[in-house]
Amino acid sequence: MINKITKTLHQLSQSLRLMVGLPDYSTYSDHMKITHPDQPIMSYEKFFRERQETRYGGKRRLNRCC
């Protein structure tokens, strides 16, 4: 039961962060470790800035509606 609640809360916070364009850092770093062990991994700070720049700055497609 408690497990389920923690999981739900975790998912809720993940979802809220994703709403403003910030995916999970641990997913990213795990992915880099497993698939690209030869490449440098961005620190959380760098990752955060990179995500911010992509969501709002780049030639990104529209990410919100009216």
Binding site: Q11, L12, Q14, S15, L16, L18, M19, P23, D24, T27, Y28, S29, D30, H31, M32, T35, E50, R51, T54, N63, R64, C65
Partner: peptide, 21 residues
């Protein structure tokens, strides 16, 4: 999958993202 733009995401988590958008 690059851990950034393309990330397999739980459907409930993604639902929130999509709804907010």
């Amino acid at each position: 999958n690059d851990g950034l733009d393309h990330v397999p995401t739980n459907k409930y988590v993604l639902f929130g993202h999509h709804f907010a958008a």
